[in-house]
Design a protein around this nucleic acid. Structure first.
Length: 889
RNA sequence: GGGCGGGUAGCUCAGUCGGUAGAGCAACGGCCUUACAAGCCGUGGGUCGCAGGUUCGAGCCCUGUCCCGCCCACCA
């Protein structure tokens, strides 16, 4: 590098490698950025200068896929632009290692099973289990605390790998702000959240029918439920009426629930059944008398219009059961099998207990599917009838398509099973939560509706307890009476100073460990939280809510929550609910929703569908981090994007072009001079316009628009045109030192500004080129700490005399190039003689930039002629003679 | 069943206030040109899903409709 006051400082062109080594640059610059701490959050700066990101913690249970690269790049692009605008960035990274996927992995990896009731082993040291061991030996039983420690051990390796990938992708995360959803602080805050909600009266526990997964054997929340299409069949079954010859036919898709029938209902206006209301129906096979009542919820058009109410077939059954105060006959057990019961005893009323028990013996112990087959056979036998002469089953089952509720991670339909669970009251907060949603800005705006619809349709309080082992324990114990029976109505909640606690290994306040599960002692609640109970605190985990009030005040509410749209009903919704219930506020100002990466068939790319194309490391190797980021940044928020390798290639090409253009511009030697030439000033005016456009787009979170405008300008207005037009003058082929200096100054300003406009999307190549000259010249060692371009960058350059002179020069050169193309000669061929026509006005306007056009066309003898037949701004080559192809050396 | 988003060149996508349809890639033709052949110059390519309506004028606004994707819905 040479430098003095008289000339521009330049690079030695020949000293730079011919090709840009992106992988080496990624290693070099990542290390430099970490070392300089340019991503560090500065707690001393005020809140209004700070931009707080509530980063989604990726699940640490598998590998990251291309969808992660996509959406995390979006956030990073926004963050980098804000950083250049001078904001103090808080950009943490969390790891979601809390939940079922990790639980499964740890079980497999160490060949262990968690059992909350066994004691903690402080010195437990396990090795990964061999395949042989997994096959031959029974899994080792460990305490919940040990299980959590094993999890942390397993996830640590993955977290290292994830971090390496994120850093290579160029995410400008402050790694000092790392957290995991199972780490001590997250457990602490999740339990604090429980305590606070408990104190405020937003929590309750009760024993009630809850959606239950029979495989995982846990309660699940409404948000974790999805409908799946399933083939079912209507079974028409004849019921009797007590003390009457009357009968009626109900239609059901779940005949196996017949023993659980506790009522019959029809619409109050249904004339077919009005005479039955108030009477008792008799079920076939089990001959249980059940009340017949009217209900607006019954649909006259569905089935036969009259239906059986069971405990429990669906949510409506639960409603009827509550409203009508019906009996509870729970036939399906927690494992999904029909439990043994005896008809004629207790709630299991029957007018023919002997027949009922004989029939039920065919069902007991079977799963739902088996029981259904068995009961259909029983129903074909006239012996079980409750009315009429024929068999209870009327005709053959009629196939139908149904939508059946499933746990999103489960395989079998959910059942409603009565268990004791903890709930957060949300049904009384719906209006308030809708109002909170309206206070947040959603990008794109229509995503707000997803939130609204979900909130409006919310039908249940939030069930937060899970009968799993790995997770954050509920900080609750129950006192036991003299018989050792727990009193669930008087829960003992942990003291806030003692958190985090594990009630299965820690005693509650005021008790000794020796009193555990003893009469007049206590028992620990073995359940853990729904993972969303912790995940919904990510803004508070980042801000250290309650643990550091001053920090919390500076970081909460956050500015942006980036996330994908399928978890609006879970992550976004619960986070809003928590901030509302805890602090009576919104958790963030903006929600930024990325779309999905889809395959050419428009299906979401996911590992389970097997349509994942390239692994992230492969993509980064093939196309460089900048190339991958280019692809991601080209997608608007909320819009799905096709996985298209062509786009990665274009990104890589752009990186190469920036490298080459940078080398060229920064190796031009010339006397220092202000930007004075007409063409240069016209170019700068366009550059200023681009800057305004890109800045405005970023203000609206529209990074794709900003990048595409910059890219368009870079090729069409910089490398292909301005650079070609000024090349000869920059070399000093004509004009004086002022003209030459003006050209080089404008080229450098153009490069400098374009690098900064590209920097949020292409952090590596822009930093590389920036480092050659601009870092020292501007005193900004990193482009990522340099200011985002503004009007101030162009303040010293006076406006062009003719704002259209740049376009005229481009058009004139294009006209000459076309003549060369038509003549089959390269644009580099010397033009020995040229007569260019334009109308008089256009000719006069072109005059100030004509030398540059002629220089770019390599003219030796050029003439401009008036030709009033042409339109304004149009040119015509009237005479041209090109040099012979030079001899090859 | 309700709602949201999309449908524009072979492909991926822009399209501002309603004012003569754009870019890149691909294709085709030419070019080794003192930054770059990982490049450059040029050429062709459209019933804007379909049908109506409003308007002097519609890719854009209104109505209907088809297709794709997604979200939601009490599954008798």
């Amino acid at each position: 590098m040479s430098q003095d006051d008289e000339t521009f400082s330049t690079i030695d062109f020949a000293a730079l490698p011919k090709h840009f080594d992106s992988k080496a640059a990624e290693e070099k610059w990542d290390a430099a950025w970490q070392e300089r701490g340019i991503y560090h959050y500065d707690p001393s700066r005020p809140r209004e200068e700070t931009f707080v990101v509530d980063t989604p913690p990726p699940t640490v249970s598998g590998a990251l896929h291309v969808g992660h690269l996509f959406s995390y790049t979006h956030t990073d692009v926004l963050v980098r632009q804000r950083r250049m605008r001078g904001q103090n960035i808080f950009y943490p990274m969390g790891w979601d290692d809390n939940g079922l996927p990790t639980e499964r992995r740890v079980q497999n990896y160490f060949h262990v099973r968690c059992e909350p009731h066994v004691p903690y082993e402080p010195d437990l040291a396990l090795e990964p289990a061999s395949a042989k061991k997994r096959k031959k030996e029974r899994p080792r039983v460990v305490s919940r605390r040990n299980f959590i420690e094993l999890c942390q051990q397993v996830t640590q390796e993955d977290e290292q790998a994830f971090m390496a990938l994120w850093r290579r992708l160029g995410l400008s995360v402050d790694w000092r702000q790392e957290y995991a959803t199972i780490d001590e602080r997250s457990r602490h805050l999740a339990q604090l959240s429980f305590l606070d909600l408990f104190d405020k009266g937003h929590l309750y526990s009760n024993e009630a029918p809850t959606m239950w997964d029979v495989d995982f054997q846990t309660a699940v929340a409404q948000a974790e439920v999805e409908d799946r299409p399933k083939k079912g069949a209507f079974h028409d079954i004849r019921f009797g009426v007590k003390g009457s010859e009357r009968s009626f036919v109900i239609s059901t898709t779940r005949p196996e629930l017949l023993p659980a029938c506790v009522g019959v209902t029809a619409h109050p206006d249904d004339e077919r059944y009005q005479d039955l209301f108030g009477q008792q129906a008799i079920t076939p096979l089990f001959h249980a008398p059940v009340p017949i009542f009217p209900s607006e919820l019954a649909d006259k058009e569905k089935g036969t219009g009259i239906l059986m109410v069971c405990t429990f077939g669906d949510q409506t059954d639960v409603t009827w059961w509550r409203e009508q105060n019906l009996a509870l006959r729970q036939v399906i057990g927690r494992d999904g099998r029909l439990v043994p019961v005896t008809f004629g005893e207790g709630v299991w009323e029957s007018e023919k207990p002997e027949l009922a028990n004989r029939c039920y013996a065919e069902l007991a112990g079977k799963r739902v599917g088996g029981a259904r087959q068995a009961i259909v056979e029983l129903l074909r036998d006239p012996e079980g009838r409750a009315a009429g002469d024929d068999a209870p089953l009327q005709g053959e089952p009629e196939p139908t398509d149904q939508a059946v509720k499933h746990y999103e991670k489960g395989d079998r339909p959910l059942e409603f099973i009565t268990t004791r669970q903890w709930f957060v009251r949300l049904m009384d907060q719906k209006d308030a939560l809708l109002e909170r949603g309206a206070q947040i800005q959603w990008h794109p705006g229509f995503m707000h509706q997803r939130y609204q619809i979900w909130t409006e349709n919310l039908g249940l309080d939030w069930c937060i307890s899970r009968q799993r082992y790995f997770g954050v324990p509920l900080p609750v114990w129950y006192p036991t009476d003299a018989d050792g029976v727990p009193d669930y109505e008087r829960p003992i909640v942990a003291a806030s100073g003692a958190l985090p606690v594990d009630p299965m290994s820690d005693p509650p306040p005021g008790f000794e460990e020796g009193q555990r599960d003893q009469p007049n002692g206590f028992t620990g609640d073995p359940d853990v939280f729904d993972t969303w109970f912790t995940s919904s605190l990510t803004p508070e985990i980042g801000s250290h809510w309650w643990l550091d009030e001053a920090r919390h005040a500076r970081l909460f509410p956050a500015d942006i929550r980036p996330q994908s749209h399928e978890i609006i009903r879970t992550w976004a919704f619960y986070t809003i609910a928590k901030a509302h219930l805890h602090e009576d506020t919104i958790p963030w100002k903006h929600v930024v929703i990325s779309g999905w990466v889809v395959d050419p068939q428009r299906k979401k790319i996911s590992k389970s569908k097997g349509n994942v194309k390239g692994s992230p490391p492969e993509l980064l190797d093939s196309y460089s981090a900048d190339g991958v980021r280019y692809w991601a940044a080209g997608a608007r928020l909320g819009t799905d994007t096709a996985f298209d390798e062509k786009v990665f290639k274009i990104g890589k090409r752009l990186v190469t072009k920036l490298y080459n253009a940078g080398k060229f511009v920064l190796s031009q030697q010339a006397p220092r001079a202000p930007i004075s030439n007409e063409l240069d000033r016209a170019f700068v005016a366009k550059l200023a316009e681009l800057t305004r456009e890109a800045s405005a787009a970023f203000d609206e979170f529209e990074f794709a628009k900003a990048m595409m405008a910059t890219e368009q300008f870079f090729w069409a207005s910089f490398t292909d045109t301005f650079l070609e037009l000024t090349k000869a003058r920059a070399r000093g082929d004509f004009g004086g030192p002022a003209d030459q200096g003006s050209a080089v100054a404008a080229l450098r300003l153009g490069l400098n500004v374009l690098l900064r406009l590209f920097a949020p999307v292409l952090p590596y190549i822009t930093e590389e080129v920036w480092s050659w000259v601009f870092a020292e010249e501007t005193g900004q060692p990193s482009i990522h700490a340099a200011p985002w371009p503004t009007e101030a960058d162009f303040a010293d350059v006076t406006a062009p005399d003719d704002p259209g002179s740049f376009e005229l020069a481009v058009e004139a050169l294009a006209t000459i190039n076309k003549a060369k193309s038509d003549a089959g000669v390269s644009v580099g061929r010397v033009t020995e003689h040229l007569v260019l026509g334009a109308n008089a006005a256009t000719k006069d306007r072109l005059a100030p930039v004509w030398e540059d056009v002629a220089g770019a066309a390599r003219c030796q003898d050029e003439h401009l002629e008036a030709n009033d037949g042409l339109e304004d701004g149009a040119f015509e080559v009237r005479e041209a003679r090109f040099a012979e192809k030079p001899e090859k050396k």
